[in-house]
């Protein structure tokens, strides 16, 4: 019961934006990073990423503004070329 909005009437159920004010997606503990030397450009991560935010032109690139850190790309990569790095 400590939110500032509880103090103001009339009540409508709102709260000041938290992470969504600064992040395009929710909080992410780790980020997937591609080891380009190991990558064979097979494109499986590009297919499996549920957010559709991996691009594959000359190389594999992950758009970290939208990456949720789910790790599916890591799981799917046959070359074990993707691994997590801590965000903090």
């Amino acid at each position: 019961m400590t939110h500032p909005w509880y103090k103001s009437r009339p009540f409508s159920a709102w709260i000041p934006a938290g992470l969504s004010a600064t992040h395009k997606v929710g909080d992410r503990k780790e980020r997937p990073v591609v080891d380009e030397a190991a990558c064979s450009m097979c494109g499986l991560c590009w297919i499996y990423c549920p957010e559709g935010i991996i691009s594959r032109d000359a190389r594999i690139q992950i758009n970290y503004e939208y990456c949720r850190g789910c790790g599916i790309c890591i799981e799917e990569c046959p070359k074990h070329a993707i691994s997590f790095e801590d965000e903090r």
Partner: peptide, 26 residues
Amino acid sequence: PTLDLKDPKIFNVMAFPDTYEEFERD
């Protein structure tokens, strides 16, 4: 409170049994 890019808010959040009744009363 209105939708405002400079002062972002989350609307229509969930109220649990400890507050829902008071929203109705308001």
